[in-house]
């Protein structure tokens, strides 16, 4: 996307300013390029199956990336998202497979969703307090749960793979609404809610103000600490939800793998979607766009017989390019 960006910038036509256009809409242009490439090259790309697979894969990245976008908007970062996914994912089967869960299926399912989300919220609260009250750098503050969160999940499950067959819980990951995956709709719903929060509420305004200039936000009466804790809690809750979805897709919970490297995907998606690392911007739909681009790049390479590992290099280049373009724009 951005190599073209710079190329095209060099040959800017007199009639249309390609440079600024691409810099502003680089993500969309990249998406279009990938889509066109796939339609021409990838066999069977234009099929329902492809859409279905990609949506069910992208939903979890997108959900976490939206939380990450809020955190990044305040100038922070959250490395613990993957670990929180593992923790939430480990809790759910423990609850609905327990005696209580077996005896009261409906209550069990409700608890299996509510309790992990509450746990995820608590993780976010922990991160938030460290960052906001103890003034620990976000990278380090969230490193604690990054390291130990997955460990706690493994301790809880004793490192075992928990398999189950529970159709009502699995609906989270395999259900269909209007022929498309349930979690895709869920991600869209969350995006709409967060979009409204960011544009219509005081909370959203303060998030951006803190990222834009924390001193000014505080001197203008912004509740800086509360808002910061809030974004980490939202990010935690969304990560927990994503962890549940992954478990539901697989009908199995593997604390070692659930959400592994998700922090990287989420940060990449947020940055590609236009979030500024220094804060002050929260493009919610951009996060979804970023998640889609990352998923599609992965898919394109896989579908065309390029190994999984090359996809990592591609991801690395995408991230670097996106940040470099941001830097250039700033200067």
């Amino acid at each position: 996307m951005t190599t073209q960006d710079t190329e095209l910038k060099a040959q800017q036509s007199a009639t249309f300013a390609w440079g600024p256009f691409l810099r502003k809409n680089g993500g969309l242009v990249a998406l279009a390029v990938i889509l066109v490439f796939n339609i021409i090259v990838t066999p069977n790309f234009l099929q329902m199956q492809t859409l279905f697979v990609n949506i069910s894969q992208v939903a979890t990245i997108a959900i976490v990336a939206m939380g990450m976008t809020l955190v990044i908007a305040t100038g922070g970062i959250d490395l613990s998202v993957g670990a929180i996914m593992a923790l939430a994912g480990a809790l759910a089967p423990l609850i609905f497979l327990s005696e209580f869960g077996q005896a009261n299926p409906a209550l069990g399912i409700a608890a299996a969703i509510a309790v992990p989300i509450v746990a995820a919220l608590a993780c976010g609260l922990f991160n938030g307090i460290l960052v906001a009250n103890l003034k620990v750098q976000p990278i380090i503050a969230t490193l604690i749960l990054f390291i130990s969160g997955r460990g706690i999940a493994q301790v809880l499950t004793n490192g075992n793979l928990q398999t189950f067959s529970n159709p009502s819980f699995s609906y989270l990951g395999t259900g269909k609404v209007l022929g498309l995956p349930f979690q895709g709709w869920l991600a869209l719903l969350i995006a709409c809610v967060l979009y409204l929060v960011m544009t219509r509420t005081t909370f959203g305004r303060y998030v951006l103000a803190i990222g834009g200039n924390e001193r000014a936000a505080e001197l203008s009466g912004g509740p800086v600490k509360r808002v910061k804790i809030g974004v980490y809690m939202i990010c935690g809750a969304l990560s927990g939800l994503a962890g549940l979805i992954v478990v539901a897709i697989n009908s199995a919970s593997d604390a070692a793998r659930n959400g592994n490297l998700m922090e990287l995907d989420a940060i990449a998606a947020a940055v590609v979607g236009g979030a500024l690392l220094q804060g002050g911007r929260a493009p919610i739909f951009g996060a979804i766009l970023g998640a889609v681009i990352i998923q599609l790049v992965k898919y394109t390479l896989l579908a065309n017989g390029v190994e999984d590992e090359v996809a990592l290099i591609a991801k690395a280049i995408i991230i670097l390019a996106a940040v470099y373009v941001q830097q250039a724009r700033k200067e």
């Binding site: 970062i77 990287l264 690392l277 590992e309 090359v310 290099i313 690395a316 670097l320 830097q327």
Partner: peptide, 21 residues
């Protein structure tokens, strides 16, 4: 002038992919 966090994150992915390749 890319922030170290992001610069080395990209290298991390690149080196990982490179090792597998």
């Amino acid at each position: 002038r890319i922030p170290p966090f992001i610069a080395t994150l990209a290298t991390m992915l690149g080196a990982k992919g490179g090792a597998l390749v």
